[in-house]
Structure formats: C-alpha cells, structure tokens
Nucleic acid binder design. Structure first.
Lengths: 352, 352
DNA sequence: GTGAAAGCGCTAACAG
DNA sequence: CTGTTAGCGCTTTCAC
C-alpha cells in the first residue's frame, strides 16, 4: 500500500493525508470539512472530524497561509505597554481580536521609531493581515506612510495618529476634552495654569496642547511660556517639572498634565514640597486610569473608554482588510470629565 | 524565455526566483545568501542582496516555516496584562525576545483557563517554537501538563507555576520574601496581622500564604482564620476586604496583602474609614510596582526585578528549545524589602 | 459530493 | 561554490 508509506514519512505530524486515509476519503474532502464547507454532507463531516480527533490532528497554519496569503494575524504596535492606559487598550484589542479568531503579534516600541520600524518589517515577513498601532514619538511620517502604502498593508492607528488623513484612526477627542478640562480650571478661578508634558512629536501631544491654548484664548488669557513644560510622559518627569515650576517668581496655581502618569509625579512633587494638592495647587490628568480615582486626593481627569477604543480599532481594521480602498475613517470618542479632589472644578463647564 | 513566464505568475510577490533571475544565479544560492551562509563568497552575496533590495524583496516566513518546522515565534500567555507588574514583565520579555529576533503572540487569558487553553491550541496551529506563561488561576494542572507533553512544546512558566516539577520556572522567592515581610510586621510589634488575597488556586498565592504562616509560626502566634481574606487581586476586592476586617471585634493592626494592586484598594478603604495608614493600620504589598513608592503614604513592598524575570524566562526558553529533554530548571529570584511609610518595619528582619 | 493534480515560496540534500 | 530536485501541508480549480 502506498498509503502506508506516505503515512510514515516526514516529521511525524498528522496531516490531512492521514485523516483522509483513515476516513477513506480524499485530502481535498478533509480540507473542506476542516473549513466547514457546506457542500460536504453531515455524515462525511462527522466521520472526518472524528478521525481527526482520534489522530490528534492539528491544523497547520503555516501551510494554509502559504497557500491562501492570509494568516489571521495582526501586528499590534504599542509605544509603551507599561503605561496602564495602553495596557488596558491592548487587553481590549486582544479580546476583540480573539472574538474574530485573530491573534496579535506584540510589538512594544518603547517609543523608539527604529524598533518600531524593525517590528513592522518583521510583520511583513510574517504576512500579517493588518496592523494596529500607536506610533512612537518621533516617527518619521513620510517614511512610515510610504512603507505602509508600498505594502498595501491595512493599518489602523489608535490613540495617536500620524497626521496622515489616508489612514484610519480611533482615539479620544483630545482638543475638546483638554479644552473642557482647562476651562474647568479657569472656571474655578485659576489664572496661572501650567501645562506639563508638552510633546509636539505625537499627535495627542499637539492636540491636547491645542485644547489648552484654546481654553486660555477663550478666556482672554495670554500664554505664559514659562508655564509650558516639555517632557516625556513619565512619573519622574512630572516630578522634576514641578520642582522647576515652583521656583518661578509667580508659580502656577493649577497644573494641567498631559496624562495621569505624569500627574502622579506632579502630585507627589507638590506634596513633597509641603503643599496640598487640590488646595494650594490644583492638578488635572488625562486618561483616567484606574489609579486616578484611588489617589489621595483622587485625581481629576478625563475618562476615556479604553474598551471602546480597542473594540473600534479592531472593527475599523476588519473593514479595512475587507476593502483596502474604502475611504479612511476617523473615529473620535468623547471622554467624560471626572472631577475629583485634586482639582475641584465644575463638570458642566462653559466649553461645549 | 521560461524565466519571464515564471516571473509574471502568481500573486505578484517577489520571490527568491525573481532575485535569482535578476542576479543570474539559482534560487538555492539566493536562499543561502538570505540566511547569510558562509559558503557563499562575498561578491555573490553583495550582488544578490543588491538585487533583492532593488526588487523590494520580503522574506516569506510562512513558506520558510512550512519547510523548516520552525517559526521564531513564541506564545506569550499572561493572566492579566492590566496588572502593572505583569505589564512590566511582558515588556521585558518582548525586548529580550526581539534581541534574539523572536516575536511573541500575545495571549491575555484574563485568568480564565478556557481562554488560556483556546489560545494554546491556536499557538499549536501557528507552530510556535515555545510558550512563556503565567497560568490562569484555576488552571487544570493535569490537563495542561498532558497537552504540553503531547505537543512536546517547550514551555517556561514565569511568576506562577503549575506545581509540575518537569517544567521550567522563573519567579520570585514568594515563601521567603513574604516570610520576611510578615516578620518585619511582627518585629514592629504587630500581633493581629491580616492576610488579604488568599488564593490557593495559584502557586504564588499558596507560597505567599505559606510565608505568612511560617512567620507567625516562628513567632508562636496562632493563625486567626477571621484575619484571612480570600479574594482575587483587584483594587475593589482589597477595598471590600478592609470593610469586613474593620468590623471585627478585635480588628487587625496590620494587613499583609498578596500584592500591591490589592494593597492600593486596602489603603484607600482604611483612609476612607478615617484611619491613618502606617499609623493606625500598617499595610504591606508585594511586587513593588512603580506606583507603590508614589502613594501617600508610600507602600512598603517586596521589590522584584521584572526585567530580570523577563530576561531569565527567555533565556530558559532558549535552552529548552535547544534541548527539550534537559533537566528542568527552577530559578528563584530574591526580592528586596522596600520599607516605606505604609508600614515602618526594619529592613534587616530576623528571618534570613 | 468527491478525487486528482498543481502549486504557494521556501529549504536541504546531493551532484557537479 | 552553485544548480537541480524534491518536497513541507495546505487549498483550489476542474473533472468525474
């Protein structure tokens, strides 16, 4: 029997061929059964599936991918998974992906464009069906844009975008949410409001700064350059920023932070300087990570539904994979202001 | 020319064949060049690489994997990526993997054994070379063990293990570290010490409880069942636990928590009850996540080097992939006690 | 409904 | 040192 010799060869892995022989049908039939093709009668299906189970068959996606040019994988690029806000988004994305039986390659770029590009190149070699990414600070827009287009690789940006309107994007409404937050501080009587975490190399940085500026503008307050602190979004950076701000001749009475992580550093520095957060200096964050509501005082922040971002990002990617040439979609999700002890501001603020 | 017809067919993807034709060599030669085989003279290499670059060649790992039965991928199972401690470990693992040009499939099980098993099954289909995992609470040991053995799949457990000595494991020394922490509380004069986060379904839960019990034993203090609170490791669970403990006729003067996340909830509840953490009630955590040192009061905890765990886990996996049948390795990493405001205890405690 | 055959793009003997 | 050849395990026309 030639069947036996075929069965014995190779790596010992059970293949469609083995099942076909055991079930007395052809390889093609087994393949169709595996993908639940309706053309196969139930009787055959059950038989084949039973044999497959008995033999301990494992579907080989490397082989299938080679044939179909599709892998049911995506590259998940995150600029910092250590940031709790992004960890939550990643968790949401992963769950949404698994619901459509996709799986993600994880690429933590650590906000380094080179590592990011290296990862994307690898993703191409692995034939991912798409990319979900929060781009690293300092990403070269033209370089990335050109690569993605060359590859014709479906790509959805989340939380940060590239300022490249041809790509899908889902994120929060940074400008309006930060305008509302700053407006709240103004409404509470603050006039010297610092902004910590200026970072023009990322879209969310530009947008939140824009919202801050717009709110001051609306209130007729001139921008004070000494109240703008440029730095990355880490706790120590927030801490240092405060040390600088408090040495000013006319120090701020409120500090709007780019995000919560930064705000934690800021609050700690204020307290260590012997001042009371929320009394002597108001502090606001952004993202509303879980810890925000647990601090003493609790942090006033802008809540963003991470699960919604994750779900929507996956949804957009699915659409994009279905039709690469459809018009791009930008989905802005409105945040909600969470006023807490660190900055007692009115929730219904003057800005829409 | 038959070459031309070959060049034109298919999906349009550039293959070794195209490069071979352009460079005037055979496909095999190009393949060797791609993998930097020393048998090929530099002259040929440069020529081939140049052509490949010109044509925009992308190495196809689906094809290579089918042939070699190796993918340079691993399945990274994490029971909760939203826990900052594990997010840090994941970041470390990912970086270590990329240094050996491996890439990870991310599988957040959400502490659900079924999701975990589904992910592992998928990983088999994707032909991963190995698995790194922190198993979900309630994982069926025999079931997992049997699957892993059946697949002969290299697997390293990190932070949590299966109590299956045949598998590699890297994690902190839970028993001795928790014994030291509890010993510290005893040394500070506490006699009613609660343990919040009892969870016998995970190894770290059993081990930390064991350390706690051992310390009390050594001090000749009987275990008070009402001071043991079973719950998962979330902030709200910690919060609720305190509400129960404070209603006790003889409430604890110190609370040892299973981990920092739980401790945050515990501290918040204590403060909301009008008590002072570190003065009225001492609190200790475990893991020493970044936030621990930033709270007011700062959290006394056991610091574990996450980067070391990540690096070591990858190292162990590499060894295991090299030799599946080598004897198993268990690597315990010693933590360091970080005494802070939430529990003023001596760092040099009586327990080794 | 099911089978035969071709081939996805790569690697690994084995010749030469 | 380079070319020829035979698959890896799957999917997919196209016949029957």
């Amino acid at each position: 029997m030639t069947g036996d010799s075929q069965t014995t060869r190779g790596t010992g892995r059970i293949t469609l061929q083995h099942i076909a022989e055991a079930a007395g049908v052809s390889r093609a039939t087994v393949s169709l059964v595996m993908r639940d093709n309706p053309a196969i009668p139930k009787r055959t299906k059950v038989l084949v599936l039973e044999k497959a189970d008995q033999l301990g068959y494992i579907y080989n996606r490397s082989a299938a991918s080679l044939r179909t040019h599709s892998t049911r994988t995506v590259g998940l690029v995150v600029h910092d998974i250590t940031n709790p806000y992004f960890a939550e988004i990643v968790a949401g994305i992963q769950q949404s992906l698994s619901q459509i039986s996709f799986v993600a390659f994880l690429g933590d770029s650590g906000d380094c464009p080179d590592r990011q590009m290296a990862f994307l190149n690898l993703m191409q070699e692995y034939n991912v069906d798409g990319i979900l990414m929060s781009p690293a600070a300092g990403t070269n827009r033209e370089h990335l844009r050109q690569k993605l287009k060359l590859w014709r690789l479906p790509c959805v940006f989340y939380s940060r975008h590239l300022d490249a309107p041809e790509f899908d994007y889902v994120g929060c409404d940074n400008v309006s949410d930060m305008r509302r937050l700053t407006g709240g501080l103004l409404g509470a009587g603050h006039r010297r409001i610092a902004f910590v975490g200026v970072n023009e190399t990322i879209s969310s940085g530009r947008e939140r700064l824009e919202g801050y500026v717009a709110a001051l503008d609306l209130a007729g307050i001139a921008l004070a350059p000494e109240l703008l602190v440029s730095c990355p979004s880490t706790r120590p950076d927030g801490y240092q920023a405060v040390q600088r701000l408090l040495q000013l001749p006319d120090p701020p009475t409120a500090i709007a932070c780019f995000n919560d992580v930064l705000a934690f550093g800021v609050m700690l520095a204020i307290q260590n300087a012997g001042l009371r957060v929320g009394e002597d200096v108001a502090v606001t964050g952004f993202d509303d990570v879980v810890e925000a509501s647990l601090w003493r005082p609790a942090l006033t922040s802008n809540h963003v539904a991470t699960d919604e971002i994750g779900r929507e990002a996956v949804q957009l990617l699915v659409e994009r994979m279905r039709n690469y040439d459809a018009p791009p979609v930008r989905h802005l999700i409105n945040g909600t202001l969470q006023a807490r002890g660190s900055a007692r501001i009115a929730t219904g603020s003057p800005v829409p």
